[in-house]
Simulated scan of single mutants.
Amino acid sequence: MSPTPNSLPHSAFDTGVLPRHQQFSAWREAVSVIFDTQTAESRDAGFGTA
């Protein structure tokens, strides 16, 4: 994370480097401190964040 002048701090998270069956759970763990990420659907088929 490297801020540029006049921009808000931010970070990037890419699940593309993980096996498809781990992508959603990795994303959910990363954002669960801010958002409720429960879902009724299975995400074993993959989950893109980019």
Rank of each mutant, 00 (worst) to 15 (best):
F47D: 00
D14S: 11
T15F: 03
V33M: 07
E41Y: 02
G48V: 03
D14Y: 10
S42N: 09
L18R: 01
S42L: 07
S25T: 06
D14R: 00
A12D: 12
I34V: 14
T49P: 11
F24P: 08
G48R: 03
G46D: 02
L8V: 06
A30I: 00
V31P: 13
S32E: 14
G16I: 01
L18S: 02
S25D: 11
S42H: 00
V31K: 00
E41W: 03
P19V: 09
F47P: 05
S2Q: 10
V33L: 13
E41C: 06
A12T: 08
F24S: 03
P5C: 07
V17A: 11
Q38P: 07
W27K: 00
P19A: 11
G46T: 01
F35A: 11
M1R: 00
F47M: 02
N6W: 03
P3L: 15
Q22S: 13
F24G: 06
Q22N: 12
R43A: 13
V31L: 10
Q23H: 05
F35E: 02
F47H: 07
N6V: 01
I34P: 06
N6S: 07
D36Q: 15
A50C: 13
G46C: 03
P5N: 04
R43Q: 12
T37M: 15
H21G: 06
A30P: 07
T49Y: 04
S7Y: 04
A26F: 02
P5I: 02
S2H: 08
A45D: 07
S32Y: 01
T37S: 14
E29Y: 07
Q38I: 01
F13K: 02
S7R: 03
A26S: 13
R28Y: 08
A12R: 06
T39A: 10
H21A: 15
H10S: 14
W27R: 00
F13E: 00
H10F: 14
F47W: 08
H10Y: 13
N6F: 10
M1S: 10
E29S: 14
S42T: 01
A50S: 12
E29A: 15
A50M: 08
A26L: 04
L18K: 00
M1Q: 08
D44V: 04
W27Y: 13
D44Q: 09
S32T: 05
R43G: 10
G46I: 01
S11E: 12
T49D: 05
A26E: 09
E29P: 13
M1K: 00
P9E: 05
F47V: 01
E41F: 06
W27D: 00
F24N: 03
V17R: 07
S7H: 04
S32D: 15
S2M: 15
F13I: 01
T49F: 03
Q23R: 12
T15V: 04
T4N: 06
P19E: 01
A12I: 12
H10C: 12
F13Q: 00
T49E: 02
E29Q: 14
S25L: 12
R20Q: 11
Q22Y: 09
E41R: 09
N6A: 10
A50D: 01
M1I: 09
R43C: 12
A40M: 03
V33Y: 02
R43S: 08
V31I: 13
T49L: 04
S42E: 05
P3R: 08
T4E: 11
R20F: 14
N6M: 07
P19I: 05
T39S: 14
T4F: 10
T4P: 09
V31D: 02
Q23Y: 06
T4V: 11
F24K: 05
M1F: 12
